[in-house]
Design a protein around this nucleic acid. Structure first.
Lengths: 139, 139
DNA sequence: TTACTTGCAAATGGTTTGCAAAGGG
DNA sequence: CCCTTTGCAAACCATTTGCAAGTAA
């Protein structure tokens, strides 16, 4: 599938790009370039700038999405063209995917009110996961 | 008012901090440290690191909020303890404040489903403002 | 063959920090 | 007077870029 993806994105198929894509496909949440580097290092040695360049190329072709989180890092994930957001534990950094997005109705409303053509949004939730919540109480 | 704010935040009142606060109070949307530097430079010369330190101190005391936007810059605004989000034109960078936030219901739901204590969220909308939309069509 | 891809090291840009001097309570 | 705040320059950290060498089509 990755070779098709790369071909249709008009990008050359290289071992490294194929591997990066397969890592993103297996991931259950968005990953940083650094995390991808760590995972891929078991299979192929590649420079971090190669990873950034591959991810940027893929993001430009809309194969992956690119989002800057509040931790200052950019996260990448396969663009399945469905709306997804994430809930992040501010203590242990665990990430839970969220499948509903209640913002389309608001976007319509906003569009009418401001005259803007709304092209997208970014949304992140923060909280404390049950495990960290227990650890915290014990202190 | 700013002297009271600083006093209750247990921060020393200095000309620079008072000026930064007054700029934030007059602002109609969130500002970056750089923007604050530009505005304040007409009144007082101060180093950019002073601005960052003042903003961080104020953010720690919850006098201002601190949010990293998708443009990679951190924006600061007076924390009025009401929920606010922003709609940003991806072409001219104009920012429109949004007063409704439909996420509380979703947060309750999420909390039940995941066991997380939800402490907050960050949300940004992107679009093209009416003016830029016209310019774009003319091309 | 020819343009695209990669590695490396250096550059970038926003933000933070160490240290010594200045200033508020 | 003591502790906080400030200026300056250097450090930081994630990400990008220039250039020369390697590789897919």
């Amino acid at each position: 599938m990755n070779n098709k993806t790369l071909k249709s994105a008009e990008l050359k198929q290289t071992k490294k790009r194929i591997l990066i894509l397969s890592v993103l496909e297996k991931a259950s949440s968005a990953l940083t370039a650094e995390e991808i580097a760590e995972i891929t290092s078991q299979d192929i040695k590649m420079s971090i700038s190669t990873i950034y360049r591959a991810l940027n190329a893929l993001a430009e072709k809309n194969v992956v999405t690119k989002t800057l989180y509040q931790d200052g890092k950019t996260y990448y994930e396969i663009n399945n063209h469905t709306h997804k957001h994430t809930l992040i534990c501010t203590l242990c950094n665990e990430k839970v995917p969220i499948n509903t997005c209640p913002l389309e109705a608001l976007e319509d409303h906003l569009s009418q009110e401001t005259g803007y053509t709304i092209t997208g949004h970014s949304l992140e939730f923060f909280g404390v996961c049950p495990k960290c919540s227990i650890v915290k109480d014990e202190k």
